[in-house]
Design a protein around this nucleic acid. Structure first.
Lengths: 353, 353
DNA sequence: CGCCGGGTCGTAAACGTTTACAAGAACGTT
DNA sequence: AACGTTCTTGTAAACGTTTACGACCCGGCG
């Protein structure tokens, strides 16, 4: 088996047949067994592998699907990648991953370069959506499905989580446990999920007739652990909640850390619920109750939507919304409201020296 | 700005010039300002974007770099992706991510398809390396740099972590804290890192003249959390260590969970050290001392090696080994050997109901 | 025996670029 | 005024495939 670059022409020459015949045999089109054998042999000997670029140029497909996410480090995106990767490779596509920052301009330039034909379709999960971004999405030459919310007048396939419903779930759960001073650690409010979650929180609190207070909601700079630490510090400096819901599992873990530092017990003193239900919620100690926004499912359906549109570009646009679930864990488990019975907690906890 | 597919020919027609001129202007080659203006205008009006596939076919480069990892879910690979993504996009390449399973056959088919010209180069981080895999790597048409160990006779760029040295670091640290019954939760022994870490552990224990015991080392099925849980259970059923070192942060977190379930305090009863020094080691409660295998740095240098080889294919192969560090955290912090003073631990810990 | 249909296979045109080559124009030099 | 440079631009050949078209051969039917 040679390792040099081999082309159809070389194989054809070696087999003593025409280029077209080689192509046909290698693509399984009908051919005489005599011819087929010769070609197979020649291809084998030369270690022939078809050039993907040339093929793409000819057939007009790259068999690549691009996935653009804001932050590869975020576990929820990792889940999505995982899922998308599976369904697109099953369908014979390769996955091109692009980590745009949270900057919409980056996403726009990405989109433009995508239109050069790197990929056949795009899965986009934007954190912030600006009018410009929407324009570029609209005028894109290739199919896009966006994971996340969009204004209703945008005619683009998309699948979103109902994070407002998720916040309702969280608040209801805490209220039923008797918690009333429910604080909220949000991400940046100028992001789509940040805004949605804040709205959901407010609505849920109002509906339950729970006391609201500006000091009881803080917005982290970012959906990251580091931002969560300072956000949690700020919150606890200015407020004394008996429960905290976080817009994100990362923020929740950060809060947990800060609570431990301050000698506050979870869930006895403060109950905690996160959002996204990623692995870290499960493996944290104590494990964290989390709103499952079904990221895997969202990613899967988004990928399938894209595949469908690729085979039928004229299909009507579909907008899917996935309902959230609540996964209850130790951070809220079976706790009476604190103060009803004062357990005279000494704040003893293992390890957090 | 039209949104329809536009080609050089269309722009040329519209501008009333030749195709070649359009190409030249758009690529910034010298042209009269008169011509340039007409072309720019026409391109603008038609919303022309060059087709990447055709360009790739002509120039023989795709400007894509592939990264193949065994498991996208593993935080250490996420770190690597992050890093690789940065350096290759800075160099003008796009990143194609492939999640091969841990199955070497998958990697082989991946490699073969890579040779079709999807990408200009490959970063490969194989979990298991078989002779077949090595053969395919050797006979690859395009440059590969592997992240991880390879037999010394393989003439391929690679950058590896010295995980044996890492194990020495871990064992030495624990020994200095007075721990003697140091157990080891490994990953699968038939993987490259699994084997290396086991060897490192054994060597370090022998060198320190610490007691070794078959019951004190278990191999998880996998480098995942789930596998870690059962491995930790097994270990604690058959052995009573005063310290555990884990081949992986995920395994360490799993161990932490099991220890909590059994009422064992960390670090008082059992000290714990992980490996890879990923985020979860930091944000775990207690935070976990971890051997930093410098995954970000490894990824970065690997990416740079690949870029170098892309511009100079004849460069001599380089093999880089990155030295590990130890990041000390709460899970081993300032603890005397247990038993020296029995603290009559009541096993009270917050939250783990 | 002639003709037609079906199977094989080769010829050549495309896909959308880049780029070597050459032709012509403009200009300075002798 | 003739000639050599240099600059500009067009012509056309490639890159490696896929595929429409047509040529040819062979057998079966009228």
């Amino acid at each position: 088996m040679e390792t040099r670059k081999s082309t159809l022409a070389l194989v054809a020459e070696r087999a003593g047949v025409s280029i077209a015949s080689v192509s046909r045999v290698l693509n399984g089109l009908p051919a005489s067994s005599h011819l087929a054998e010769r070609v197979q042999a020649a291809a084998q000997e030369l270690g022939y592998v078809a050039d993907a670029t040339a093929r793409s140029l000819k057939v007009g497909r790259t068999e690549q699907i691009a996935l653009a996410v804001a932050d590869v480090g975020n576990p929820v995106y990792v889940d999505m990648m995982h899922e998308v990767s599976r369904v697109v490779t099953d369908a014979g596509y390769r996955l091109v991953l692009s980590s745009t920052g949270s900057n919409p301009d980056d996403q726009i330039t990405l989109l433009q370069s995508l239109n050069r034909g790197y990929a056949d379709g795009l899965l986009l999960s934007p954190l912030r959506v600006t009018p410009e971004l929407i324009d570029t999405i609209r005028s894109s030459r290739l199919p896009i499905v966006v994971i996340g919310s969009l204004p209703p007048d945008v005619e683009v396939d998309n699948v979103r989580a109902d994070s407002a419903a998720g916040m309702t779930l969280a608040v209801a759960h805490l209220a039923e446990l008797g918690r009333r001073r429910i604080a909220f650690i949000n991400g940046p409010v100028d992001t789509v999920p940040g805004a949605a979650r804040l709205a959901g929180y407010t609505a849920a609190m109002v509906k339950r007739e729970l006391p609201m207070n500006d000091d009881a909601t803080v917005g982290a700079e970012d959906f990251t652990l580091a931002a969560g630490l300072t956000a949690a510090e700020t919150l606890l400096d200015q407020s004394t909640p008996d429960a905290i819901v976080c817009a994100n599992d990362l923020l929740a873990v950060a809060a947990l850390k800060v609570l431990a530092r301050r000698g506050l017990r979870v869930p006895e003193d403060i109950a905690l619920v996160g959002m996204d239900d990623t692995d870290i919620a499960e493996l944290s100690i104590p494990s964290i109750t989390s709103v499952d926004l079904r990221s895997a499912k969202r990613a899967r359906t988004a990928a399938r939507l894209l595949l469908r549109r690729l085979e039928d570009p004229s299909a009507s646009v579909s907008r899917v919304v996935i309902e959230p679930r609540l996964t209850v864990r130790e951070s809220t488990a079976g706790t009476p409201a604190p103060g009803s019975i004062d357990t005279a907690g000494s704040g003893v906890r293992g390890g957090a020296a």
